[in-house]
Design a binder for these strands. Structure first.
Lengths: 224, 224
DNA sequence: TAAGTTTGTTAGCAATACTATTATATTTAC
DNA sequence: GTAAATATAATAGTATTGCTAACAAACTTA
């Protein structure tokens, strides 16, 4: 069951790439091979040489699309947030109750991406896995300020802003809506990583997705 | 005003280093130079060659202390958590009210380190700054599971465990104490980074440390 | 079919991430 | 106080990374 019109096009900030990878066969192989290789060996160990080999191309060709591997990750993460904003708006369409909207939004931001959201040119399930463990590396760098000026984080900021607005609608007096939402987003990523690798930092509860339930509970209690 | 006995010794997990840096002059220069250089150029751009130059030593000498720069960061972060556990236990001594204990603990985990906690052989204020932006890189790697087996994250886990225990004392029915605390710790780090670089992801409130207040408020509401 | 564009091929260079060897201090042991 | 042990420095070397450049081949479009 697909929820989305399957020929939607996600428009990634143009400052990220030298040449739009969605515009060519090689570009798409770079992206899908990049997803696979990152999942296989981790982003740290990925090099354009290895990626070139994997997709049967050459280092130099990949460099024509992305300045460096950091930009490739930035592309993936930016794509993710543009797409997540779309999912968010789509999912909240025609729902008027602000509380219901908030709960749906938190669900989208904290639960793993399922197959029903798949798109033809991007394996969103793989992408989501990468975002969990690698996305914070995209902004925790010396280059944040410069990249931020180029607008590469605005999709993420808009997502946080949209959900914060719902909170403000519910309780205009609540002082920390942005902190609450960005805490939940980043936190959910971390918790999913922890539950796999450092379980003493999390809690497991039988029969529920503890991450989603925890953040729903936390947010609803925080804003009253 | 110093709160601590100044000749306390922080014992870092032995799997992290080849040779204990606290045991020699060169070792201590590696650590303090490492702090400075990381703050100057960021951990990504730090190399042992640059660090050697800074402390007037050689690459090969540094390699006798740490296998690679990742281990150096691991050392710093592990040191931080051992020390934070100490601060925590020290600060909660003789306080019996669980709620008061919790509030103090959250304060320690979310506020910036101040001068009063300084120790002779480690610039804890600098260390804290580094932890905010670099510590997650220490576990978001392919090597987590191996390193975790070596016990290098146990100080962090104990800190989370101790504060979770206070929560359980206050409300034994609360299902997510570990998630709540690890969310607050990591979240506070992120929020401090955001407020400097991506302010649209946070909220500023005049006349208060919004990060500390937000997490106190969030936690106290969550556990009732 | 020519011109333009994209990709592949090859080469090369500077920096990184180490390891090894030998020499020179410095510490400690007797 | 000297010998032995140990720590550090100096130098060199290797494989890999992170690029850039130049040209050739293929494929696209006008």
């Amino acid at each position: 069951m697909h929820r989305l019109i399957s020929n939607i096009q996600i428009k990634v900030n143009e400052n990220i790439f030298l040449k739009d990878p969605s515009s060519s066969n090689l570009g798409q192989r770079i992206i899908s091979g990049g997803l696979d290789l990152t999942l296989e060996i981790g982003f740290e160990d990925l090099t354009f040489k290895k990626l070139a080999k994997k997709i049967d191309s050459t280092e130099a060709s990949i460099y024509r699309y992305f300045e460096n591997k950091h930009k490739l990750l930035l592309y993936l993460v930016n794509w993710y947030w543009v797409w997540t904003e779309y999912r968010l708006v789509f999912s909240l369409a025609n729902i008027t109750s602000p509380k219901e909207r908030l709960i749906k939004a938190v669900h989208i931001l904290t639960s793993p991406v399922s197959d029903e959201w798949k798109l033809p040119h991007m394996d969103t399930v793989k992408l989501n896995k990468i975002v969990l463990s690698e996305s914070s590396k995209v902004y925790l760098t010396r280059e944040v300020d410069n990249e931020n000026k180029g607008g590469v984080f605005s999709a993420y900021k808009r997502v946080v802003g949209r959900v914060s607005d719902i909170i403000t609608e519910i309780n205009p007096a609540y002082k920390y809506p942005h902190m609450l939402i960005s805490t939940a987003i980043e936190g959910a990523h971390h918790q999913r990583f922890f539950s796999e690798h450092l379980p003493r930092l999390t809690d497991n509860v039988d029969g529920e997705d503890a991450v989603v339930e925890f953040y729903k509970d936390m947010i609803l209690k925080a804003i009253v």
